[in-house]
Design a protein around this nucleic acid. Structure first.
Lengths: 248, 248
DNA sequence: TAAGGGCTTTGACCCAGATCAACATGCGAA
DNA sequence: TTCGCATGTTGATCTGGGTCAAAGCCCTTA
């Protein structure tokens, strides 16, 4: 099912929406045209599994649009989300043949893919790519460590507030909303996915969402559409220094 | 306090104990001698803070011996360990001037340091270093994600067993003990540090250690010296696939 | 227009792990 | 040899979040 986002995509890297943030961000025109020759697009429907943990993965690539999740599962079914992949994020690890995680499309997803072998040899020859990939990996590591604090030490209410502030912040950055005034966004995750993200049950997620609504920290239109009247209030609820709260 | 490990250290990279695992692992003789000119050793006593979160950090470097921890703290004092730095691990992030974490020496630590600026420009010119650093960062990211599953979804008993199996596995790899037969090692962490690692209280750690001992999963000589009679049993207690349990 | 199936909310109850408190152990300094 | 302090253990009690269960709310399909 090639849907709208796919067909509206330019094949031309130079006006790709993630051109300036993805692995290719630092490439010059020459490098970019090499990548352009190698790349191909793939689309995945909401709910579709992109790769299973342990499966062979013969491509790597960037999320162009949509949202995917990385998760780990124990034999008895307990699952923990370990990564939330947004547009420009890179999926797949050079130098490894199998996926360590389940990668699932949460919304419809378009990826800009490269076959793994050619991409790996491209990395060897192109420091710009290697360098950008290092930078992105270091950022992901920082995000993972922030998340570890959330998982290990925060209360359920703080966890929910933390997740909301992450999504609100990202959305504001994307849409260039100002820091002040109410923030408005749609939750891209079900209650269950939020629970898997935060190490909670979906019932607890639901209860805490209701509690934050009751206390005026957020407003809900429907299940997924959220308004945050006061971002600093949300940051306080998340247990973060409200000072560092400059958006972007 | 220049203590024994320091004075017994060779200044010569070619017989450095972490030569084949650290950032410099892939360097050829030429590159290595450049690094050799830049490097300097620093020692830290057990308990000493190497850098505070938020502080300027004008060096980066490898742990040569000893153990350091990375941790994050909330205003009210809740703390979560987010990294356990062992010999050959790299501390500090190129391209960032301040530390995002508290870095603390858990035992006496020797580091092989480089001033940040020269090291960064060395990276630019030396793909071998950049590539190795990327590889190490990806490994750390995998470890962080494994840890997220532990923090988010495992019970206290499973958490303790997970930590013990990580330390046991590492020790076995270092000392080339066989996979079979009992594993013996010393815990490099206090009960409190274990708690900070696992998102528990120190009381719970103590109770679960006692329980694992009572159930014959581990034996304790003193508080810190641990014997694991059956590694697969420990893996089962950790809730991991006991199959993948090949050491190293 | 109804029926069925995701997703979400809410209630009642329970329990793993936190909290509070007392005590034990072991080690370095005086 | 004892004192003091850091580290660790164990007990009693409390509670945040899990578990189990029942509905509610949409949206799609018939």
């Amino acid at each position: 099912m090639l849907n709208e986002p796919m067909s509206s995509l330019s094949q031309n890297c130079s006006d790709c929406p993630i051109r300036h943030r993805a692995v290719c961000a630092r490439c010059d025109g020459d490098e970019l045209s090499k990548l352009e020759d190698m790349k191909y697009y793939r689309t995945f429907q909401a709910g579709q599994t992109i790769v299973w943990s342990g499966d062979r993965m013969d491509f790597v690539g960037s999320v162009v649009s949509g949202i995917a999740t990385l998760s780990q599962t124990m034999e008895d079914g307990r699952t923990q989300m370990v990564g939330l992949m947004l547009p420009s994020d890179f999926i797949g690890r050079p130098g490894r043949t199998t996926s360590a995680y389940n990668v699932v499309a949460t919304t419809d997803v378009v990826m800009c893919c490269f076959r793994k072998k050619p991409f790996e040899s491209m990395i060897e020859r192109t420091p710009h790519i290697a360098h950008r990939l290092l930078e992105m990996t270091l950022d992901e590591l920082d995000a993972a460590r922030e998340w570890m604090l959330v998982l290990g030490r925060k209360t359920a209410r703080e966890k929910i507030a933390s997740l909301l502030s992450i999504i609100a912040r990202r959305d504001a950055a994307l849409q260039l909303q100002g820091t002040y005034g109410p923030l408005v966004f749609d939750l891209p995750l079900t209650r269950e996915a939020m629970a898997d993200y935060l190490g909670l049950t979906l019932e607890t997620v639901s209860r805490q969402m209701s509690a934050l609504k009751r206390d005026g920290v957020i407003e809900l239109q429907g299940k997924r559409h959220v308004t945050v009247p006061d971002f600093n209030r949300l940051m306080e609820e998340a247990g973060d220094d409200s000072d560092g709260g400059v958006l972007v």
